[in-house]
Amino acid sequence: MANFKININGKSQNVDVDPSTPMLWVLRDHLKLVGTKYGCGIAQCGACTIHLDGNAIRSCQLPISTVKDKKITTIEGLSEDGDHPVQKAWLEHDVPQCGYCQAGQIMTATALLKRNPSPSDEEIEMAMNGNICRCGTYTRIKAAIKTASDSDIA
């Protein structure tokens, strides 16, 4: 066990865990931020996607010991109240079915729109290809990303 000081959603947090613990479980078990989902544990499904210094990353493959002073953003930190443009677009298109994968989808989509504010259909498909939606809401996810395109994403 070791003590780590990490920056999550703009707040400094202290966690006492084994250094190998992936951020996914630090968030879910220790910080009770359960919006980040466990889907596969091997970076194949995207349900656990968070932002590390603004880049989309699979938190199941990110040991806490490697985070250091990099800034982490989770779905809970995307907005105070669901008013982030990507979240609003998701609500407008009523994207979710079961909803389990959607936090990961939103985090990947947000990172995409930050680096490419108006992606083409193909760019959306490529960027989102690592996020599985078992319910098959892919067409709505794409529509929501297009709606959120060119919005001011901080």
Binding site: V34, K37, T74, I75, E76, S79, P96
Partner: peptide, 17 residues
Amino acid sequence: KNVDAKKIVTGQPLFGL
């Protein structure tokens, strides 16, 4: 709209896990 949509897109606890 899905009555749970807001909770889903903001990552609030909803699921068994």
